[in-house]
């Protein structure tokens, strides 16, 4: 399949799922390209409601682009099951293998979603607020996309865009052109500083970004720690077998039940997780200790883990 045909393939997949009553949407890089923020991504990240995973597995089993079967990607992927996705695990699939593989990453929840992702869909795509929240990662390239989405949201009269501006110059320009609602500023200290034209505003924006990066890094480390025994178990169980998607799924469920905690961040303690990230920023001299007061309360971004 030509790479320029891929977006259509994924959109058709979402359409077919919607025809079956499944709530789902394309997010991340492809959504960014759709909204006018070019990224050289070929992977498709799909948000799918956790109650519809059976329908999604059914559809993946019968979708065979160019005669290739869908299968879980490597041994690393957790099973597509609501128990694990409610705790922040994601599942990874592919058609074919190697560089030519067509890949699909499935999320039951949008990572860092402050509101349910299902509430903000635009056509076949996740809304820009969800996409921007998902992109608060430890990858450098994602941050320009976050601000670009935020600016477009403000331009489209979506006030939540103010939460996604991480560039100090752009924030100053926007504040001159448009009033920022006080309720949003109250939720984001860096915004309050920028509104007061405080020279510390750029430092506060930087501190906030470093905080999100550290949170993402620690989340990945935590998940990876749990994945090691799971991957070894999947590798051993699959050895030498040519499994169908459903057979592989059943095998992964078994391995996950033994080795993967369903909700590792909650189990670790969300307050502890956030507190350690803050401490690491100060210890690593990434932000000064007094900058901790500039960081927003991030609890709302992890509330979905408690539902």
């Amino acid at each position: 399949m030509n790479a320029s045909e891929l977006p259509l393939f994924y959109e058709r997949l979402v359409q077919r799922l919607r025809e079956r009553g499944v709530v789902c949407a394309i997010t991340s890089g492809l959504a960014c390209v759709h909204y006018g923020i070019a990224e050289t991504t070929q992977d498709c990240d799909l948000l799918c409601h956790t109650r519809s995973f059976e329908e999604l597995l059914d559809l993946l089993s019968v979708t065979r682009p160019e005669g290739r079967d869908c299968h879980y990607r490597g041994n690393l992927s957790p099973p597509l099951d609501a128990r694990w996705h409610r705790g922040g695990w994601t599942s990874h699939f592919e058609w074919g293998a190697g560089l030519e593989a067509v890949t699909l990453d499935v999320f039951g929840h949008a990572l860092r979603e402050s509101t349910p992702w299902e509430d903000g869909l635009i056509g076949l795509y996740a809304g820009p607020h969800t996409v921007a929240e998902m992109k608060r990662t430890s990858r450098d390239k994602d941050w320009a996309a976050v601000t670009a989405l935020g600016v477009r949201m403000i331009e489209a009269d979506d006030e939540r865009g103010w939460l996604h501006i991480f560039n100090a110059d752009t924030l100053a320009e926007l504040l001159q052109a448009q009033a920022c609602p006080s309720a949003l500023a109250a939720a984001r200290p860096a915004l309050q500083l920028a509104l007061a034209r405080d020279p510390r505003a750029p430092g506060a924006l930087n501190a906030e970004r470093r905080f999100w990066e550290e949170l993402d890094r620690r989340r990945i480390q935590l998940l990876e720690g749990h994945l090691r025994p799971y991957v070894a178990a999947v590798r051993q169980a699959r050895a030498g077998q040519a499994l169908s998607l459903r057979e592989d799924h059943a095998l992964r469920l078994e391995c996950a039940a033994r080795h993967l905690p369903p909700n590792p961040l909650k189990e670790y303690g969300l307050q502890r997780y956030v507190g350690e990230a803050k401490a690491a920023l100060v210890e690593g001299a990434l932000i000064p200790a007094d900058a901790l007061t500039w960081l927003p309360d991030v609890a709302i971004y992890f509330e979905w883990l408690n539902r």
Binding site: I37, A38, A144, T147, A148, R152, N167, L174, Q178
Partner: peptide, 14 residues
């Protein structure tokens, strides 16, 4: 003006 700000950001960032 908002579009101008958006464009200026994209030129700086991308």
């Amino acid at each position: 003006r908002l579009r101008e700000i958006e464009h200026a950001f994209q030129v700086r960032a991308f």
